[in-house]
């Protein structure tokens, strides 16, 4: 399984998000290597189609829905929680569901 973790250092949630990804992989008994990539320029954000930090790709698929006209930039990414609230961190269940597909 190909797992990529893209982040922008200007968003403080990336370390917590990476730990959450590792936790999800442990729960799903997945032992794959995580390819970690720091996105540090606007050009890189566009080249990597980076909708914000953190972004997790499983087999090149984003774990969450990407807006139809995404804005690729050095920004923090908003994740919608099951209760409708917004968080800078992807929920554990969202990562687990993506890993199960």
């Amino acid at each position: 399984m190909k797992i990529q973790f893209l982040y922008f250092d200007g968003c403080p949630s990336h370390e917590k998000a990476l730990n959450r990804l590792k936790e999800a992989m442990q729960l799903e008994k997945i032992n794959s290597h995580i390819e970690i990539k720091e996105i540090s320029t606007q050009q890189e954000a566009e080249n990597f189609s980076f909708p914000g930090s953190p972004t997790i790709l499983i087999n090149d698929q984003d774990i969450d829905l990407v807006p139809q006209n995404p804005h690729f930039a050095l920004a923090c990414r908003a994740y919608k929680l099951p209760d409708g609230k917004i968080s800078p961190l992807p929920p554990l269940e969202l990562i687990q569901n993506a890993l199960r597909k």
């Binding site: 920004a75 923090c76 908003a78 994740y79 609230k85 917004i86 968080s87 800078p88």
Partner: peptide
């Protein structure tokens, strides 16, 4: 508007 921390 856009920052998820601001939204949170």
């Amino acid at each position: 508007n856009h920052c998820p921390y601001a939204q949170a």
